[in-house]
């Protein structure tokens, strides 16, 4: 498990103070994947550098299984680092070494004997599905294969925590899914705590159990995936269940509602139940559906005909277990 507490990083640049991280707190239990999502400039890179101990944080702690890495002496730091595997965006393999020697590098540093090293490398390359590429050089592999090698290398010292920095941002969509599935598979097999830093919602949807939104050096929203997605109006919910922009409608057509319905398989959709109850059509203008952890999340923009009071519809939907809000009035009313 990795626990980050009140992590701060302040840079000084020409008499200006830049608070790249302003007190980040995170916790990733074993056998789970936590995503940190943020736009560029949010502090993602700084967070990765501090967690990978490439930069010393200004204050705060980074604990792996109770050992604070941010404050150990440099000599102990190198040993402590073996508890943490890092996967980089561009894999950062060493071109001068073969695939096998790339994976063996952390083992060389740890002083593992040659024979033992070879056995471990074979095992790791098998784990990532590249058993036959041992003698190749990185340049001979595709981007996805290189990232697999990067993952194998990160796992070489049997770490407890895997830190993935934009692991799929340089890959095409299909390879992205292959790599994400590999990370999820490895997490399940080895019981690792995995922290994925990314700007792609897709990554969060596909493999994360929980997620944090990083903005201006702060975690502004955090929680289990189902929890944050089910919160209508929440930033992460908006990002994960994106709707196309609303087209302006004449007020005479009625009001529009934003509805977020959470259903289990077999449940009747709240909207369908409401249509029956009011004996009226509630046309869906736009909608996004995601299945996460066996739960279906449907976010819709719904038109409420003038014959119905939108407030009554909202409270009825609430009774059916769906959150909803009345959207901003259409342009006709503003005018």
């Amino acid at each position: 498990m990795i626990a980050v507490k009140d992590l701060k990083k302040v840079y000084h640049q020409a008499n200006r103070e830049i608070r790249a991280l302003d007190g980040v707190t995170l916790e990733v239990p074993d056998d789970s994947v936590h995503g940190v999502i943020g736009q560029s400039g949010a502090g993602k890179s700084t967070l990765v550098r501090c967690l990978a101990l490439l930069d010393r944080p200004t204050s705060g702690t980074v604990e792996i299984n109770g050992v604070d890495l941010a404050h150990v002496r440099s000599s102990d730091l190198r040993r402590a680092r073996r508890r943490l595997g890092v996967v980089f965006q561009h894999a950062n393999l060493f071109d001068s070494r073969t695939i096998a020697d790339n994976v063996a590098y952390p083992l060389e540093l740890a002083g593992v004997e040659r024979r033992e090293r070879a056995a471990k490398v074979t095992e790791l390359l098998g784990l990532v599905g590249l058993g036959d590429a041992a003698a190749a050089h990185p340049a001979q592999l595709s981007g996805g294969q290189r990232q697999r090698v990067g993952i194998a290398r990160a796992l070489a010292t049997d770490p407890d925590v895997l830190l993935c920095d934009e692991p799929t941002s340089a890959l095409d969509p299909r390879t992205t899914d292959e790599i994400l599935d590999l990370i999820a598979d490895i997490k399940a097999r080895l019981g690792l705590a995995v922290l994925v830093i990314t700007h792609e919602m897709h990554v969060v949807k596909r493999i994360c159990d929980s997620v944090s939104l990083l903005e201006a050096g702060l975690v502004v929203e955090s929680g289990p995936l189902a929890g944050v997605v089910g919160r209508l109006g929440g930033r992460l919910s908006e990002m994960l269940l994106q709707l196309p922009p609303a087209a302006p409608l004449p007020a005479t057509l009625g009001a529009t509602l934003e509805v977020l319905d959470t259903t289990q398989p077999g449940d009747t959709a709240a909207l369908t139940a409401a249509e029956r109850h009011f004996d009226a059509d509630l046309p869906v203008l736009a909608g996004t559906v995601e299945h996460l952890d066996g739960t279906t999340f449907s976010r819709m923009r719904v038109l409420v005909p003038p014959s119905l009071d939108p407030a009554v519809v909202v409270s009825h939907l609430k009774g059916l277990g769906a959150e909803s809000t009345i959207s901003a009035p259409s342009i006709d009313e503003v005018a």
Binding site: R81, N92, F94, Y105, A110
Partner: peptide, 24 residues
């Protein structure tokens, strides 16, 4: 990035120069 990787895996500065940078 390669230098970062070398450090993140726990290389000393000498190891980073000798085992990574010069071969690269």
């Amino acid at each position: 990035g390669k230098v970062d990787a070398a450090h993140a895996m726990g290389s000393t500065r000498a190891q980073t120069v000798w085992k990574v940078m010069l071969p690269e």
